[in-house]
Design a protein around this nucleic acid. Structure first.
Length: 543
DNA sequence: GCAGCGTTAATAT
DNA sequence: TTAACGCTGC
């Protein structure tokens, strides 16, 4: 993730800091990095989409850190990834394949009964889904934590916020693990921040155009710095074989002009430089400089930096490599966390699961340790049947909970949805004694279920692909069902812990629909994309 | 000196 | 997943 070896190369500019230096300021958070770290503590539960309190640990991890920032009087602004842009498709596919391989291996180990090896592999297979991000968003809403879902890259959105004044919603620094932020020219990035707020910071203006330290960026400007990052290899474009961060730096420092660097590269490396490298390079540069971001003031998308006449004229003004433009209504719905940017489906509002309201930082820290000490809060869970809107509101916390009928005989169960597993995996897990969702329904609640499509996807809102019109139509029809579901009252099944009177410890269990999350928008063919995106947009403007 | 590869440790509790 | 380290070949 990020720029190859950039952080190592920038070591002389790294300073140890404590996040409290930003007391009274607004600080941006790259949600993906904390979601991912948080998911380590429940990787198997996340990978197998199991139900249960343990799975919500990633939420606790996240909110603990939010609490810590608030403790130091920092205003956190959480930024989520949206869809992925075309030139990142190769990177995304590679990651997806690796995760799948690890998950398959983990399942094998699990079948063999080697749970240690399995959990290690599950950790490498962890993937943050839009549903997980949405769960977090609901908690952020209830805790009044500011957030925004980027139309595409969270990094670009963070860079945009960093360019705004505080009064206009700007942020002064960013907490992340992704070195891409430096390529986006973010002014201050805190990496490797621990749970106490200690981290390592790079402030770009201490490097660019400043003499003294080595490597010196004395005659660099922001564009040259970004160019150096791309040459070294980034998520959008792998580096030319034989070129790493050091050679990239030397080329840029020597020629101080990116076009010249590309010419020299071709001269020196010849055939090794792919035919379309200069074009791909310029597109990558354009992404870092002009990525589409959400502008909260105008409530629509805009480029990170104003588009240049060259960009508007070149390639017939086709800017789809930045990710397709989105209509303002779609952009707002995505930014505010109401529309899944991968599937373009409305998120179904369902109560947060098993997550206890976060408290102030020291309190929440204490609470976490108390939970560990007492073993679990999972005993004596109950199941709420036939929930209607009013009950849902109550469980969400919008209304008091009194009067809800509950069946107290149910015990807490870890439930796995069979749809995400192969048949052999299912039977192996059953042998190991894991209960499954469907079984849970059969055993406990034969109540009718209306399915809402719940689409597993691979990144926190990433992956957009569609194979053909048929699948697009499938997406449309399931999305149509989803919008019906949000409007029509119908029986649904909830589980909630018995101790949840004042909390939001409840969960809507819903069967899974078709797996279309990875089939929206074919990235490899931008022209293909336009017509389909267009029909998606038309569809949603109707909704 | 550098890129690039493989190995290992750490991520979280 | 990545960072860090050591080794190897150019």
């Amino acid at each position: 993730m990020g720029i190859n070896n950039l952080l190592k190369f920038m070591k002389p500019y790294v300073e140890s800091v404590h996040i409290k230096k930003y007391a009274g300021k607004r600080v941006g958070i790259d949600a993906y990095s904390w979601l991912h770290k948080g998911a380590y503590s429940c990787s198997m539960e996340v990978c197998l989409d199991m139900e249960g309190d343990k799975k919500t640990r990633f939420l606790q991890y996240f909110m603990h850190r939010i609490g810590m920032l608030r403790h130091y009087k920092i205003t956190p602004v959480v930024v989520f990834d949206g869809g992925s842009i075309p030139c990142k498709a190769a990177t995304e596919d590679g990651r997806h394949r690796k995760r799948k391989t690890n998950r398959d291996l983990a399942m094998e180990k699990l079948k063999e009964g080697d749970t240690d090896a399995a959990s290690e592999l599950f950790q490498r297979a962890v993937n943050i889904t839009p549903q997980m991000a949405h769960q977090l968003i609901q908690i952020l809403r209830s805790e009044n934590v500011e957030f925004v879902v980027a139309p595409y890259e969270a990094d670009a959105q963070l860079a945009y916020l960093a360019s705004l004044e505080t009064e206009k919603g700007g942020i002064v620094a960013i907490i992340s693990e992704d070195s891409d932020l430096l390529a986006y020219n973010c002014p201050a990035v805190v990496f490797k921040m621990d749970r106490y707020g200690k981290g390592e910071e790079i402030i770009l203006k201490n490097a660019i155009n400043v003499a003294g330290r080595k490597p010196s960026f004395m005659y660099f400007d922001r564009e040259l710095f970004t160019g150096m990052c791309i040459l070294a290899g980034c998520d959008f474009l792998p580096s030319v074989p034989g070129i790493g961060i050091v050679k990239a730096y030397n080329l840029v420092a020597k020629y101080r002009n990116l076009d010249r660097v590309l010419s020299v590269l071709k001269l020196e490396k010849g055939q090794v430089v792919p035919e379309d490298y200069p074009t791909a390079f310029r597109q990558a540069l354009a992404v870092f400089q002009h990525a589409r971001v959400y502008d909260a003031a105008s409530k629509k998308l805009k480029p990170l930096n104003p588009l240049t006449p060259e960009l508007l004229q070149g390639d017939n003004g086709d800017l789809d490599f930045l990710g397709p433009d989105l209509s303002p209504s779609i952009a707002v719905a995505i930014a505010e966390g109401n529309l899944n940017p991968c599937t373009m489906e409305a998120f179904n509002h369902f109560p947060q699961s098993g997550y206890k309201h976060s408290l102030s930082y020291p309190d929440s820290a204490r609470q976490l340790s108390t939970q560990e000490a007492t073993g679990s809060m999972q005993e004596g869970c109950f199941t709420v049947v036939s929930c209607h809107k009013t009950v849902k509101k109550r469980i969400r916390g919008d209304m008091p909970l009194d009067g809800i009928k509950s069946s107290s005989e149910g015990e807490h169960m870890t439930v796995i949805s069979e749809e995400v597993l192969h048949e052999s995996e299912t039977s192996a897990l059953k042998k190991l004694g894991f209960p499954f969702r469907n079984e849970a329904f059969v055993q406990k609640e034969p109540a009718p279920l209306r399915s809402t499509p719940n689409i597993p996807s691979n990144n926190p809102f990433k992956k957009r692909k569609i194979d053909d019109e048929v699948q697009l139509n499938e997406a449309m029809s399931t999305a149509e069902q989803a919008s019906e579901v949000t409007e029509v009252e119908k029986p649904e099944i909830f589980t909630a812990t018995q101790k949840s009177e004042e909390s939001i410890d409840s969960k809507l269990i819903k069967p899974k629909g078709k797996r279309i999350g990875e089939k929206l928008l074919k990235q490899s063919n931008p022209k293909h994309v336009s017509s389909k995106v267009c029909s998606i947009l038309n569809f949603f403007s109707r909704v």
